[in-house]
Design a protein around this nucleic acid. Sequence first.
DNA 1: ACCAGTACCTAGTGCTACTGTATACCGGTA
DNA 2: TACCGGTATACAGTAGCACTAGGTACTGGT
Lengths: 115, 115
Amino acid sequence: MGNQMTEMLKGTLEGIVLAILARRSAYGYEITAWLRDRGFSDIAEGTIYALLVRVEQRGFVDVEKVPSEKGPPRKVYSLNAKGREQLAEFWRTWSVLAERIEQLHHNDHRQDEGA
Amino acid sequence: MGNQMTEMLKGTLEGIVLAILARRSAYGYEITAWLRDRGFSDIAEGTIYALLVRVEQRGFVDVEKVPSEKGPPRKVYSLNAKGREQLAEFWRTWSVLAERIEQLHHNDHRQDEGA
DNA sequence: ACCAGTACCTAGTGCTACTGTATACCGGTA
DNA sequence: TACCGGTATACAGTAGCACTAGGTACTGGT
């Protein structure tokens, strides 16, 4: 993937996955496929699994092992209360950053205004 | 600073600084102060200097040493052509990411819509 | 002589995403 | 039977970035 996007995903990818899990429970392989369907073109599979381990260890999600007809058992993740709080915090941080950057973007197109 | 914001700044802080330099040339101490004035509350000084070294090594900026009446000489950075191209690339990447995330943010508030 | 403000620099740390590889289960096919 | 592709997870090693916590150096005021 583009190096720039890779760096930008740091700190946001976790929020993205939590947001997906807020809509419905899902397992790693599914999330990866979902992300690829949307524009997140080629997020490495390994990345998602590592992230899911992380959020599980932090207690943001509950896990349930569910047998699959098509392969090995799935680990289905559900967002819990703590995870929902974390997601809310993510949106707060994101909003602050996005707003400040959009301001810069604006000013970037018409130079000089001191304040 | 908040851990979340710290992680989110990875990959975006460079773009932010380039955007600042697109408006006018500046030196490290000045940029740090500027960022603190704006909402980027407590970005560490060391961070900015390290970042400036990086973008200089990549050839995105030109540097000029200017004596100061108030302390040691300043290293004034100016965005050059290559830097302007990098900044444009940054805005492209940012736009893609921000759009996708905003979509998620939207859907986050009214559940289920399959596609 | 000392301190605060200005201005810069650097080694080491922690966190995160990526790469590459390994494991395992299933169905289809040669 | 043997093999391959799709499904599904896991993990060790790598690279990049912001932060911490120092340090250097120049100026003016007390």
